[in-house]
């Protein structure tokens, strides 16, 4: 163990796939022998990013969401991409409780959840081109056998 491992998923931007996406990433991460809490963190962060792509990126319309995950040592990096509308004011979008869609009962906590449950979060977005969310997390309990 401790070797580099990689996976890529592509799926339609449909809310039914939010569950599929987080379960698939959690299954990939399971080779790092995570605790129940760590797996829950990963699932929640992935769910938030994919939900953002579905609701905000593609506004519930058609599109493709891509997830790539890389395991290196005891760390996982997860990249979630959409080619949707993009975010014009990223700073405001990332503020806790800010939501551009209050009518949909969004809590505005998505990015805050990703930041809290993962070790690192980096978001880049371009209006009309899409959004890329990069997150990483170290699994403290995992020994690389060195």
């Amino acid at each position: 163990m401790g070797e580099r491992n990689y996976m890529k998923l592509e799926f339609s931007s449909k809310s039914t796939n939010e569950s599929f996406a987080r379960v698939a990433v959690a299954a990939f991460a399971s080779q790092l022998d995570p605790t129940i809490e760590e797996i829950s963190d990963i699932k929640t962060a992935v769910s938030e990013a994919v939900t953002n792509a579905v609701i905000h990126g593609y506004e519930n319309g058609e599109g493709i969401v891509t997830i790539e995950a890389i395991i290196e040592g005891n760390e996982i990096q997860i990249i979630i991409k959409d080619s949707g509308r993009g975010i014009h004011d990223l700073k405001t979008a990332m503020e806790p409780f800010y939501t551009s869609k209050p009518e949909l009962e969004r809590s505005g906590m998505g990015f805050t959840v990703m930041e809290t449950f993962m070790d690192g979060l980096e978001v880049t977005s371009e209006v009309g081109k899409g959004t890329v969310v990069k997150m990483n997390k170290k699994f403290e309990s995992f020994s690389t056998g060195e």
Partner: peptide, 13 residues
């Protein structure tokens, strides 16, 4: 066995 911020949104509303 799972809840994300959408659940928080539902509770707040």
């Amino acid at each position: 066995n799972f809840m994300d911020s959408s659940g928080i949104g539902l509770l707040m509303a």
